[in-house]
Amino acid sequence: MNILSIKNLHATVDGKEILKGIDLEIGAGEIHAIMGPNGSGKSTLSYTLAGREGYEVTQGEVLYKGQDLLALLPEERAQAGIFLAFQYPVEIPGVPTVTFLKQAMNSVRKARGEKELDAFEFKKLMDARLKELNIVNDMVRRPLNAGFSGGEKKRMEVLQMALLAPTLAILDETDSGLDIDAMKVVAEGVNALRGADRSMLVITHYQRLLDYIVPDHVHVLAGGRIVRSGDKSLALELEEKGYADIATAAA
């Protein structure tokens, strides 16, 4: 059974249809990349999967580990192991990052019937992850994402992913706004989290991220549909020919 199975997914935002029949199967441990031009529906797909309000599914189904994903609240999806790394991580003034992380962690553990971590247990766990990801302690004491640089925000997303250990991670344009060095650091973090029991859906506009996070499968999204699928060489082909060619050729 696949981790994620999307069948003929249609979704609207403000009454406008953005996704027009997506089909996608993601197996355990697989990394899929979705590439596409602006306005092709990339972010809509990630928000729809995460259950954001205002993204209305009009047709089709999404099964996550065989269960109807669309019936779940956003927090239930997160608790079930779906993680969305945001393109623009949100600032929450006055809430220390470490407070937020611990609450997120314990909310997930509680929902899964696991014992919640006390302050010491949590700190131990967090310190270990910080070390692995080379993140300085100072960052987690500051209010969540407030005044963080673009690179810091994305690393914070990776740290959260490391702590929450999702089954399916959706990375929404994780490379946007990053220079090449910052992107490398983030990609290293993501690669460290690859594993046989973790699938990833990497959404990106540019091929360059895929030099560092190498996918098993690449899909091209255009006009709300997947118009082509292939292996990692498809990304290189796109880089060479541009989206226009591929989208037209497929249509």
């Binding site: 956003p74 945001f86 949100v90 929450i92 937020f100 609450q103 997120a104 209010p143």
Partner: peptide
Amino acid sequence: SDDQLFYCRQRGIPQEDALTLIVNGFCR
């Protein structure tokens, strides 16, 4: 903002807890 609430919920924090967290931050 809806952005803040959704962000917290995406991390597994139920809606009312998320609101409390955000408001406590505001009052810190």
